[in-house]
Structures are given as structure tokens and as C-alpha cells.
Amino acid sequence: MASTQWLKVVHAESSAPAQSVSRNNVIRFPSSQRILLPVSLHYASPEQSRAQIRALLHCPLGVYVAGIEAVRGDVRVLFDIAAEDFDFTLHTLIATLPQATIGRLSRRSVKAASSRA
């Protein structure tokens, strides 16, 4: 949270004491709801998994990747997206990696995200 700034106002014409006026220059934007979207990519070889990860990270979805994990022939990717970006994410994912298996959506709690940072 940003601190409040104080501005001292002095009138040149009057001999009245200066007044302190509080100015808060922080504009609050409504925080959007965040969604966690798990995706699994099956691969036959390590080269294929690296190619899939490279394609994913170099497409516009790369900014949403919150984690990547290799587990028994699958690459599991966790996307952290805003609720209003879900449509874009889903369409781009299908166009980029049509063989991906999309998991169950879950809400990301704000408290858990702030404690991770």
C-alpha cells in the first residue's frame, strides 16, 4: 500500500498559518479474479517435450505460465490467468498445442498468491 503524501499549502497574501492537506496519488484498480488452469502435454521423447515447452513459452501464452513439471511421460504446465483472459488462453492453447489435455479450473486465492511472492 502506498503512503499518503502531505502537501503544505501557504498563501502569500495572508499571514495565516500554513495548512497541511492530504493528497493520495494512488489510483486503485479493481483486482480481477485469477484462475489456475492445469494442462498436461504427453511426449514420447525428451526432444519432443523440449519442443512442446519451447512452442508454449514462445507463443503469447508464455506470460501466463506459473509452473512446469515433468512427471512420467507428461509435462504438466500450470497457467495463472485472469478470468477475462480465459477465452483467449483456451483458443491460443488449442491452436498452439492441440494435443494438450486441459485439466480442471480452480480459483487462485489472493492470500496464497501474496504469501508466495
Rank of each mutant, 00 (worst) to 15 (best):
L93D: 08
T89Y: 02
L36F: 06
P98L: 04
D87W: 02
R34D: 10
A16S: 14
R23P: 01
A100C: 04
L90V: 13
R76G: 07
A44G: 12
A82D: 01
L97T: 10
W6Y: 11
S106Y: 05
A112F: 00
L78W: 05
L57I: 03
R23F: 06
D80T: 02
V21Y: 00
S31I: 06
T4S: 10
D87V: 11
I81M: 04
I68C: 13
T89A: 14
A112C: 03
L97D: 12
R108Y: 00
P98S: 09
A83P: 02
H42S: 09
I102M: 06
P38R: 01
D85C: 06
P46D: 02
L41S: 09
L90R: 15
W6G: 04
S15I: 09
R107T: 08
V9M: 04
H58D: 14
A44T: 12
E84N: 11
A113D: 10
E84T: 08
V10S: 02
L61G: 10
K111I: 07
E13L: 13
T89W: 08
C59T: 13
Q99K: 08
S14D: 15
G103E: 12
T4D: 12
F86H: 11
H58L: 14
R108Q: 11
G67Y: 09
A95T: 08
G103D: 13
E69L: 07
R108T: 05
R34V: 11
S31V: 07
S20T: 15
E13G: 12
I81V: 09
E47P: 01
I94F: 04
D85Q: 13
H42A: 11
L90Q: 15
A51C: 01
W6P: 02
H42K: 08
A95G: 09
P46Q: 02
V21N: 01
R108K: 10
I81H: 00
P38M: 03
D74H: 14
L61F: 08
S115I: 03
T92H: 02
A112D: 14
T101M: 13
L36T: 09
Y43E: 03
